[in-house]
């Protein structure tokens, strides 16, 4: 039995002749907040999709709570306790904010508890005033928050967030940072993000992707001051 909540072992993903992710391993303990960063096309989102069951790895294995989840559907992985937020806000546009969050909560909790949880989550995320609004008419940042609420509502053990701060206002990003730090006290969080100031604010440990492989991994301060990481972000050849 492994001590880790999530373990990715030597994951490789090929699309025809293109190797999007090459032999990447990652381990995460309960209560950790880990960030995945890297330039565009580095393989972060592909790696994220392998963890969440949207892609089946060409080789390697993903263990969640010690059990292999390779080849399992996203629905089954979500039921096992993984909350997944996609890059583009993925919500039910024709439904109200409350209906969106309620559908997420009621999957995991009995209806009376789900209603309470729904109110609690909307309040914490700051979208209670939008409860009766149709999600389709909301701004991009607000839709991001609604999706985040649907991810959190079922009380997952691990939350995977793909660019959660994209399209948010400065104030919303600040609130999101506080929320993620708070969430990491009760569950584990993996964040894929581009916004370096946001990463600096929340990250404790970071993995940097470059050209489908792990370039650097370690505590946030150490990684962010690494010359190779700067070179990668500036498009320079890595030494």
């Amino acid at each position: 039995m492994t001590d880790y909540l999530l373990e990715a072992r030597n994951l490789t993903m090929r699309f025809g002749g293109v190797v999007a992710v090459r032999d990447v391993s990652l381990s995460l303990r309960e209560g950790e907040l880990h960030c995945l960063i890297g330039p565009n096309g580095a393989g972060k989102s592909t790696f994220f999709r392998m963890l969440s069951g949207q892609y089946r790895p060409t080789s390697g294995e993903v263990l969640f709570r010690g059990q292999s989840i390779n080849g399992q559907s996203s629905a089954k992985i979500a039921r096992a306790g993984m909350g997944i937020k996609t890059q583009v806000p993925s919500v039910f546009n024709a439904m109200t904010v409350r209906e969106n969050v309620m559908l997420a909560a009621v999957r995991a909790l009995p209806p009376n508890l789900a209603r309470r949880r729904c109110d609690e989550v909307m309040k914490r995320i700051g979208i209670s005033h939008l409860a009766a609004e149709k999600v389709g008419i909301l701004a991009h940042g607000q839709r991001q928050l609604v999706e985040l609420a649907t991810v959190i509502a079922p009380r997952p053990a691990l939350i995977l967030l793909d660019e959660p701060a994209a399209g948010m206002t400065g104030e919303e990003v600040e609130g999101l940072g506080d929320l993620l730090v708070e969430l990491a006290r009760s569950c584990s969080v993996i964040v894929v993000e581009h916004d370096m100031s946001f990463i600096r604010r929340i990250a404790r440990s970071i993995t940097v992707f470059n050209q489908g492989s792990v370039l650097v991994e370690g505590p946030a301060d150490q990684v962010l001051s690494d010359q190779r990481v700067r070179d990668v972000y500036l498009g320079r050849e890595v030494a």
Partner: peptide
């Protein structure tokens, strides 16, 4: 019903319904 709301959710966004743990 709850079943009916999930059906409408599938029409709206099947991926999200799946990611919430519903066997679509």
């Amino acid at each position: 019903t709850y079943f009916g709301r999930v059906v409408v959710a599938l029409r709206e966004n099947e991926l999200r319904a799946e990611l919430l743990g519903y066997d679509t």
